[in-house]
């Protein structure tokens, strides 16, 4: 295991160290997906790339939105917009647990002094039609990551199996830096000429989005967008695989999946507005899952998804 590094001093330093660590371990360092998602898993670099037979290794930060968790920037731990760090390696390497523990050392957690535990936690995403087995990882009683071996995504059995690591960055950083309220956490170096705290960067937006999410978002418009996204997703997938203009075989899994992501986020917004009843909830989740499944079906028909002309 790596030599214990010096303690990081800021939120961004923790992110940068994770980036260098996973880059050194051979992951493609990707950038956040440019759409609103509820978790890093929704990034096509995870959802779609965990499907099919091709090998894959990627790591990235993903801004994630959970409208119902908004607390106007007042709660020490809860945010409607936060960052996840996501690692996906397919096939999962045999030393994935050790690689993961190395990443904790890289951000300044001394294995000799702390109690790290792998506690059973099975993962399921009803909206993605996905599940896996793994653990939540505890450091001195605190959950610092989710560790999952994907078994099924979009209704497809995963083979090879991907190993997925998800770090809740704010919570992990607060722990490493010894901060009690997220808004007090140094965002950049506290010695920098213009030192910024997490609150300087995000308190304003937390307030604004909390108000919009809970009380202002136009539910009729959101509902209309949801139905449009659903229709567009299906329309994209109903196209012929052969592009009439270029004559090439182009299966449009990704543009369709964008619409699925949109529908999923719109559902989250509607949920935060409190206009979805308990019984309707299941129905909406089922509609998004149906889209996710169709996108997964389409992705395994692409070359990136393992399709080859010989299979045709």
């Amino acid at each position: 295991m790596a030599q214990t590094a010096e303690k990081p001093r800021s939120f961004q330093e923790i992110i940068l160290r994770l980036q260098s660590y996973w880059a050194a371990k051979g992951c493609a360092i990707m950038q956040p997906y440019d759409m609103e998602v509820g978790a890093g898993t929704f990034h096509p670099a995870t959802t779609l790339r965990s499907l099919g037979s091709k090998n894959w290794a990627a790591a990235y930060v993903q801004p994630s939105r959970r409208p119902t968790d908004g607390r106007y920037g007042e709660n020490p731990n809860r945010l409607q917009h936060y960052y996840q760090y996501q690692v996906l390696i397919k096939p999962s390497p045999p030393d994935l647990q050790d690689l993961y523990l190395g990443s904790l050392e890289a951000i300044g957690i001394d294995m000799e002094m702390h109690d790290i535990r792998f506690v059973e936690d099975d993962w399921e995403s009803p909206t993605l039609g996905a599940w896996g087995l793994g653990w939540e990882v505890w450091c001195d009683g605190m959950e610092v990551s989710q560790f999952t071996y994907f078994q099924q995504v979009g209704g497809h059995d995963c083979h090879p199996v991907s190993g997925e690591l998800t770090y809740g960055l704010e919570r992990l950083a607060m722990y490493v830096l010894g901060i009690d309220h997220v808004m007090d956490m140094p965002y950049n170096d506290p010695q920098a000429p213009i030192a910024l705290k997490y609150g300087d960067v995000f308190r304003q937006t937390e307030e604004e989005y909390s108000r919009w999410n809970f009380d202002v978002a136009n539910t009729d418009v959101l509902l209309k967008h949801f139905e449009e996204a659903e229709a567009e997703c299906q329309a994209i997938l109903s196209q012929d695989h052969e592009d009439p203009k270029t004559g090439k075989r182009i299966v449009m899994a990704h543009p369709a999946y964008d619409q699925c992501i949109k529908a999923s986020h719109l559902f989250n917004l509607l949920d935060a507005r409190g206009v979805i009843s308990v019984t309707e909830r299941q129905a909406y989740i089922g509609r998004v899952r149906a889209l996710a499944k169709q996108c997964a079906d389409a992705f395994v028909q692409t070359e990136a998804g393992g399709w080859t002309p010989e299979l045709a």
């Binding site: 096939p91 999962s92 390497p93 045999p94 087995l133 793994g134 078994q151 083979h159 090879p160 199996v161």
Partner: peptide, 18 residues
């Protein structure tokens, strides 16, 4: 009660068998 596959293995175990 619940088992899984990992990596390229076809074997199922509760978590990866080493």
């Amino acid at each position: 009660p619940k088992s899984m596959r990992w990596g390229n293995s076809r074997l199922k175990w509760v978590r990866p068998l080493h």
